[in-house]
Simulated assay, not measured.
Amino acid sequence: MAIRTRITELLGIEKPIIQAAMGWIARAQLSSAVSNAGGMGIIETSSGELDAVRGEIIKMRMLTDKPFGVNVAQAFVRDPEIIRFVIDQGVKFVTTSAGDPMKYTAMLKDAGLTVFHVVPNLAGALRAVEAGVDGLIVEGGEGGGFKNPKDVSTMVLVPQVVEAVDVPVVAAGGIMDGRTMAAAFALGAEGVLMGTRILSSAESPVHDNWKRAIVEADATDTVFLNRKGPGPALRALRTERTARLAAEGSPNIFGEFADTQRVYFAGDLEAGIALTGQVAGRIHDVKPVAQIFDETMREYEAVTAGLPRG
Rank of each mutant, 00 (worst) to 15 (best):
F265L: 15
A243H: 12
I175Y: 10
S250F: 09
P168C: 10
G267D: 01
T180W: 14
D221I: 08
L187W: 06
P168N: 13
K228V: 14
K211D: 01
P251W: 13
S204V: 07
I175E: 02
R235F: 01
A266M: 15
L199F: 15
E256S: 02
T196F: 03
R179T: 06
G178F: 02
Y264H: 12
A171Y: 08
A290C: 04
G195S: 00
A189G: 02
G195Y: 00
K228E: 12
V215Y: 00
A184R: 01
S201L: 02
R282L: 15
D221P: 13
A184W: 05
P288S: 10
G255C: 07
M181H: 06
D177T: 04
R179V: 05
L187H: 07
E270L: 03
V170F: 11
A247S: 11
D218K: 14
N252P: 10
R262K: 15
V289I: 15
D208K: 09
F254H: 07
R197F: 10
T220Q: 15
D268T: 12
P251V: 12
A184H: 05
A164S: 13
L275S: 02
D268G: 13
T180I: 13
P251C: 15
V206G: 05
R238P: 03
V263C: 15
E248M: 07
N209P: 05
G272D: 06
T180G: 05
T260Y: 14
V215A: 00
L199T: 11
G178V: 00
N226D: 08
M176V: 10
T276E: 08
E248N: 01
A202K: 11
T222R: 02
G178H: 03
G191Q: 11
K228T: 13
I198W: 12
H207W: 13
A280W: 09
R241P: 03
H207N: 14
